[in-house]
């Protein structure tokens, strides 16, 4: 089937099997490898992308269901080659990752949280990432990263 997807602001037409998940469409169809597969059954959040700004699990959505919506992946929140957004830079500052496998999903969960809640409490941060598993960090430096990002975003004009 032919499918029109808007990914990171660019319209793309893909030829896919009907059963293709959004995750597989992004990785194999569009060739964006920053979105990772962890469980492919909706638990780990590794595959998180934004659909019209909301964090969703791309393994649970068919690519066809994303038609007509704006899909944002980790590549889409990276300002430019070699550059980092404030949220990404905050993850680096606190070392909010180790192997980096969960990191794109975590960053997107953080972006979604901070869009709606610019000054989250620790509990709110924990709640927002509780659907994203990380096996490396024990979450401590991820929570620090998101708190730091919130603080920096409030002081800056650009997201």
């Amino acid at each position: 089937m032919k499918l029109a997807l808007n990914v990171n602001g660019t319209d793309r037409v893909l030829e896919l099997e009907d059963r293709t998940s959004l995750l597989d469409a992004l990785r194999d169809g569009v060739g964006l490898k920053g979105t990772h597969a962890g469980c492919e059954h909706g638990v780990c959040g590794t595959c998180t992308v934004l659909l019209d700004g909301e964090a969703v699990r791309s393994c649970l959505i068919l690519a066809a269901q994303a038609e007509g919506h704006a899909v944002t992946t980790i590549e889409g929140v990276t300002p430019g080659p070699g550059e980092l957004s404030i949220v990404q830079d905050s993850f680096v500052e606190t070392h909010g990752m180790q192997c980096g496998y969960c990191t794109p999903g975590m960053v997107l969960a953080a972006v979604a949280l901070l869009r709606d809640n610019p000054a989250p409490t620790r509990d709110e941060i924990v709640e927002a990432i509780s659907g994203n598993l990380c096996r490396c960090t024990g979450y401590g430096q991820i929570v620090e990263a998101i708190a730091l990002a919130a603080e920096r975003l409030q002081r800056s004009n650009t997201p």
């Binding site: 979105t35 980092l84 990404q88 070392h95 990752m97 980096g100």
Partner: peptide, 21 residues
């Protein structure tokens, strides 16, 4: 000191085995 690996990971730029085509 910043951890140099983090810069690529946070941008989705890690090269994992399943990424190879």
């Amino acid at each position: 000191r910043r951890v140099r690996e983090d810069r690529r990971f946070v941008a989705g730029g890690g090269h994992y085995a399943a990424d190879l085509v």
